[in-house]
């Protein structure tokens, strides 16, 4: 039996992505999923600490446009060692913000391969798939894989006891879709 090359893709469609670092690992996220990039410092006064033992990856909430956004520590989400996070991605059409170490670069991908079927646990929710850039395999995160609806309800219930201060707009980099 010959090992067949992956089937030729249909006309190449590119997707703009942001490569970012968390705990010395590189991940990719569709740039269309990121509404705004903020420095951690710019949200220091606006974020409220929250603590829910079952969701240790969420330590802060931000009030934006009459709703709470929850900041997920990406390193903790993926079970990686904690790292010095410097930036926050505010995700588009989402109540999730991602605490990351830094942006590596913006680029585009033409290939998104499904995770091999041998991966059979949470990673299927974590990633949209894998892309290949410069002969390296990079996982492409699923923006909806960080918090479930149940997680958000739980966090809403916790933060409902104390209102959050509104965060100042305009202190970050707004990304166009």
């Amino acid at each position: 039996m010959r090992f067949k090359r992956a089937p030729a893709a249909e006309p190449l469609r590119t997707e703009q992505i942001i490569l970012f670092r968390s705990s010395n690992q590189i991940f990719a996220i569709s740039s269309g999923s990121v509404q705004e990039v903020r420095s951690v410092d710019s949200l220091a006064g606006a974020a409220k600490e929250i603590s829910e033992p079952s969701l240790g990856k969420v330590r802060h909430a931000i009030r934006r446009s009459d709703r709470n956004l929850y900041v997920v520590n990406v390193a903790l989400h993926f079970g990686l060692p904690p790292s010095a996070a410097m930036l926050i991605f505010l995700l588009r059409k989402s109540r999730v913000a991602l605490l990351i170490d830094g942006i590596e670069k913006m680029t585009s991908m033409t290939i998104l391969q499904a995770l091999p079927k041998a991966f059979c646990h949470e990673e299927h929710r974590w990633y949209r798939g894998l892309t290949v850039l410069d002969q390296s395999v990079i996982p492409v995160v699923n923006p909806e894989g960080f918090l479930t609806a149940e997680d958000l309800s739980l966090l809403d219930a916790i933060s409902a006891t104390e209102p959050l201060p509104p965060s100042a707009p305009g202190a970050g980099l707004e990304l166009n879709p």
Partner: peptide
């Protein structure tokens, strides 16, 4: 990369496949 399937060591690239 980060995952939760302990039997898997990682991935290789072979003829364009992961």
């Amino acid at each position: 990369f980060a995952h939760r399937t302990p039997e898997i060591d990682g991935v290789i690239l072979r003829r364009g496949r992961v």
